[in-house]
Design a protein around this nucleic acid. Structure first.
Lengths: 217, 217
DNA sequence: TCGGAACCTGAATGTTGACTCATGTTTCAA
DNA sequence: TTGAAACATGAGTCAACATTCAGGTTCCGA
């Protein structure tokens, strides 16, 4: 999962980056504009000219910084991956144990999607526009998540599952769908209650609770 | 959530369908071809001429049966929705209770995706190509699922959750991701084990098992 | 066996938009 | 001060379709 495997002649070729301050500013403008436009209209309905106009630069300038339309898109996806992981790490930092971290993580994810609707759309569309970037996004995420689970299990905070890869994908899927449902389609519902209900499911499962002491009302 | 709200002048307009056997055969050919092509190359990289060639009909024939490229696509999504729900219903028919149904459902879903890789891709791409069809797909699915959960809860087979809508979306998300991960990206892993591991999570949750009687090995 | 409905066809049209390139302009180290 | 590297530009190129249309062909009931 190292970023630069170095043997493929592809992709890599890192443009060494703008040399001047002016260049760096223009690059950032283009990236921000691309994020906005792709996020709002989708990859195929976005023209390079939309991006350059939004960025306030000439059409040709785009190709000074990117080799193709797809390249910006990929850059955006990679950037979002880093940002998402960062947000997750931050949000669960204060958690007392993994079960609490799960709840905090779900809530943080919904909030994150809400405040990055456009960019999150880009990530999802990557599944079709830049499949390799999409897979990398989730592979990387899954690897980190799996490690969290393994550590928590060894601390006895969660059960030893039958297969952590499966658990991780199920958990990512749950969060992802909740992100769409409550982050994008319906951004009104309180994210705390959603996270509470969801983490209750993820932590205790569907199985009926062992009849504790249901105090008669 | 009724299918035909009846006030929008849109979409509906049901082409009454082919009148002759020849027509019905051509329509089916076009639909099958569209499914194959869209599934293999994606919506935007598929040309109408790809579809008509695959179907073995003239280019113009396409427009005898569909108003536009998007229309076939929508038809395909709707068709897949029906097929998926049908497969799920069938697979869980023999379940003894809802917990068992969950396991069977997850496994059946993975199998279903495996045997309809192309078509399933179409469903996912609908999120960007035909968002309304995509939402309808999941809304319909969620409604049916919610009802299952509510009935199971009233029978005491599962816990009363805090919010069934949330549970349903978390569960759909989990299955969906497992479908991608083990149905499309890796179709080798035994779907039974995946479903077992996943349903263990969905049923019992992450929480450590109450220390029963761990028989010393 | 006739007429019209249903169906079929592919060349032509028109648009769109990614990408190129020849020509500037700006920056900055020497 | 200067020249070359870095950056900026937008008109023009070119290929790729989606959709139309005018003119067939096939089918079938009367």
């Amino acid at each position: 999962m190292s970023q630069h495997s170095g043997s493929e002649p592809e992709v890599v070729e890192e443009r060494s980056g703008p040399k001047t301050e002016r260049g760096r500013r223009t690059l950032r403008r283009l990236l921000d504009a691309a994020g906005e436009e792709f996020g709002a209209r989708g990859y195929h309905d976005t023209a390079i000219s939309n991006i350059t106009q939004n960025a306030g630069v000439g059409l040709g300038t785009f190709y000074v910084y990117f080799k193709s339309k797809e390249e910006v898109f990929r850059a955006l996806v990679a950037d979002m991956g880093a940002r998402t992981r960062h947000a997750m790490t931050e949000s669960t930092r204060g958690a007392h144990d993994r079960l609490e971290a799960e709840r905090l993580g779900i809530q943080a994810f919904i909030e994150f999607v809400r405040s990055h609707k456009a960019l999150y759309r880009v990530v999802m569309e990557a599944q079709f526009v830049a499949p390799e970037a999409y897979r990398a996004y989730y592979r990387t995420f899954a690897a980190a998540y799996r490690q969290q689970l393994a550590q928590a299990a060894s601390r006895g905070e969660i059960s030893e599952g039958q297969d952590d890869e499966v658990r991780v994908w199920a958990l990512m899927g749950a969060s992802s769908f909740l992100g769409i449902r409550y982050g994008i389609w319906d951004a009104e519902t309180d994210s705390g209650s959603v996270a509470a209900a969801a983490s209750d499911l993820m932590i205790n499962g569907l199985a009926p609770r062992a009849q504790k002491d249901k105090a008669p009302k």
